[in-house]
Design a protein around this nucleic acid. Structure first.
Length: 578
RNA sequence: CGGAGUGUAGCUCAGCCCGGUAGAGCACUGCGUUCGGGACGCAGGGGCCGGAGGUUCGAAUCCUCUCACUCCGACCA
């Protein structure tokens, strides 16, 4: 490709509303253009990157035995009504009516359609297992699209669905996909980690997320550097402290804490560490059967994990209590509430595992402007229910007992689920087994956010000059930057020849033949993230040499003209650009 | 959905308080000089100042409504 023949649109300044680095750089490099909130056009340069990502995914999926198909983006409401998600899914599901007033959706995912496909054509155990995938545009009407292609509304996704005659076979394929995903992200040149995940709204049991590690990631990941344990913080288990609860050494005392509603303020006032305090969070479970009020106890420096909490029996769904409800049940304004003196018959008290092991702690007195010190379970307050309801923190013991947890941030680029029979059951996706008996299929589903990968790659690889793409997905592998292409015949001839040679060698090369000053050429090639650069100038040509510089190299090196191809080949296949 | 903010040239922004026929830098076009790290000169093109209504002799500027976008929160995954 010659830049003069390409649609090349770089910007010196990023649009003011771009928030994250990848978004700014993608807009500056002209990879994408914003069309509406969370909706982008992929320009030719960006599409080259996207297609390279797709190609790697497609190759590895095919290699893993999956079969590609293409389902419609537009889906009839009937299928969603049949699975029950027509009502379960919120406004995130984009619905519309056609000219006959029939309801349709623009698919945010394709479980319904694929299950329909399979139930129509798969009748026998002999046709199973099967793994079908597509690379397709999805639409999720996010409340707040942001971060460019990282959380867009329209995005490209690879989604695969597998069907099995047994859970054991589903587990086998799940493992197959786990390994396939690891190969895909490795080939893409990304630093990633597979983490145990919550199964969320899609439902099912086993689930792993694949995260590209980056500080700007939206998800917090707890991992153990000393083992392979890694889990989304939403799911990471807070383990029971090894030490059992200490004996009570203090007597219960009421202390004035006017205006101190936060644990940190109370701790500071009493000159105690924050981890001696206990905060109480009032929640309400409201269903047709009535309203139930509960008090959740957490150590002052811990945060509530709503996902874990919502899994407590009888508490789901829960919401935070209103001030009026708190006054109604505890007779006290929020900020000073605690478990002491509450009627355990009316209020359910659930302590985090860590709190349950505390003694002589500080908590609200259920009286405005007062807290209690020296509080002990069993003596001052009945033993509460105990559950794991907090977010783990860095330094916590790893649940596998092999060291301490660290927390890092990640961008979720892949997610694999064992759906089991959730959709197959709802949509009656069945087959006949060896005995001729009707059985429901076991299902797995496996997604990769294709567009998000491009953003994630840039979050992971960039510097002040622009994008540093992994070689596997860079828009071009090599650029040739001629010094005065329009002026010097020697440079022009040598550049054209080099370009032809590299192209003939199957290298994805771009020749920047624009009649611009060198600074412009250098800056643009660096901005768009081309990993390898060859500079052709009269200076080097005089001694039969071409200058080479990797995108991250500090210094350029001179390479003999007739050695360039060999030199480059080695760089391209063996050495990462950075 | 609640709170805050922003809409002026393709991009970044000034002008708005204090009404008087629309500006800068970058980008773009032409000519010339320049040419190994985002050059310079001269000459140009480009805007219904988000939209509608109102106040006024006169509105980018003041008022009302509306739309879009952004941020924080809630929600969702």
């Amino acid at each position: 490709m010659r830049t003069s023949q390409f649609f090349f649109t770089t910007l010196k300044e990023a649009p003011a509303d771009a928030e994250v680095v990848s978004q700014k750089l993608m807009l500056r490099a002209g990879l994408i253009k914003r069309v509406a909130a969370g909706i982008y056009t992929w320009m030719p340069l960006g599409l080259k990157v996207l297609r390279k990502v797709e190609a790697i995914i497609r190759e590895e999926m095919n290699h893993a035995g999956a079969l590609e198909l293409l389902m419609p983006a537009v889906q009839p409401a009937e299928l969603w009504q049949e699975s029950g998600r027509w009502t379960q899914y919120g406004p995130e599901l984009l619905r519309f009516k056609d000219r006959h007033q029939r309801d349709f959706v623009i698919g945010p995912t394709h479980e319904e359609v694929i299950t329909d496909v399979v139930r129509r054509d798969v009748k026998s155990y002999r046709q199973l297992p099967i793994n079908l995938y597509q690379i397709q545009t999805k639409f999720r009407d996010e409340i707040r699209p942001r971060f460019g292609v990282m959380r867009g509304r329209e995005f490209l996704m690879k989604d695969a669905y597998s069907f099995h005659t047994s859970y054991a076979d589903l587990e086998r394929e799940y493992q197959n996909m786990f390994e396939t995903y690891s190969r895909i992200f490795t080939r893409l040149g990304l630093t990633f980690r597979a983490v145990a995940a919550d199964t969320g709204a899609i439902g099912g049991t086993g689930s792993h997320e694949f995260h590209v590690l980056a500080d700007s990631g939206e998800d917090a990941i707890a991992y153990c550097p000393d083992s392979d344990y890694a889990a989304n913080v939403e799911l990471a288990e807070g383990v029971v402290p090894e030490k059992s609860r200490g004996a009570a050494t203090q007597s219960l005392a009421k202390v004035p804490t006017p205006g101190k509603t936060a644990c940190a303020d109370v701790a500071a006032l009493l000159d105690l560490p924050l981890n001696r305090t206990v905060k109480a969070i009032a929640v309400v479970n409201e269903e047709e059967s009535g309203k139930r009020f509960a008090l959740l106890l957490l150590r002052g420096d811990h945060d509530l994990n709503e996902i874990k909490t919502s899994k407590i029996e009888g508490l789901s769904p829960f919401r935070f209590a209103t001030e009026a409800e708190i006054v109604e049940f505890l007779g006290c304004k929020p900020g000073y509430i605690g478990p002491v003196g509450v009627d355990f018959g009316k209020v359910r008290v659930i302590a985090d595992r860590v709190v349950a092991a505390m003694s002589d702690f500080v908590c609200g007195a259920n009286e405005e402007d007062f807290h209690l010190t020296g509080v002990n379970f069993g003596r001052d307050v009945p033993e509460p229910e105990v559950a794991d309801i907090r977010n783990v923190l860095a330094g916590d013991a790893s649940p596998d007992g092999k060291g301490a947890l660290e927390i890092c941030r990640g961008i979720e680029v892949g997610h694999i689920f064992q759906l089991r029979t959730k959709y197959a059951q709802a949509l009656e996706c069945c087959y006949l087994d060896e005995q001729g008996k009707t059985q429901v299929m076991e299902m797995g589903c496996y997604g990769i956010g294709v567009t998000r990968i491009v953003g994630a790659a840039i979050e992971q690889g960039h510097d002040e000059r622009g994008i540093i793409f992994p070689a596997a997905i860079a828009p071009f592998e090599v650029c040739i930057v001629p010094m005065a292409y329009a002026k010097s015949d020697a440079v022009k001839t040598a550049s054209d020849q080099l370009y032809a040679d590299l192209k003939a060698a199957g290298i994805d090369v771009v020749l920047d033949d624009r009649n611009e000053r060198p600074g412009v050429l250098f800056a643009d090639m660096e901005l768009i993230g081309v990993p390898h650069r060859l500079v052709v100038g009269e200076r080097g040509l005089a001694s039969g040499q071409i200058e080479y510089k990797g995108r991250c190299d500090a210094e350029a090196v001179m390479v003999a003209r007739d050695q360039v191809l060999t030199f480059l080949r080695e760089k391209l296949c063996c050495v990462p650009a950075c």
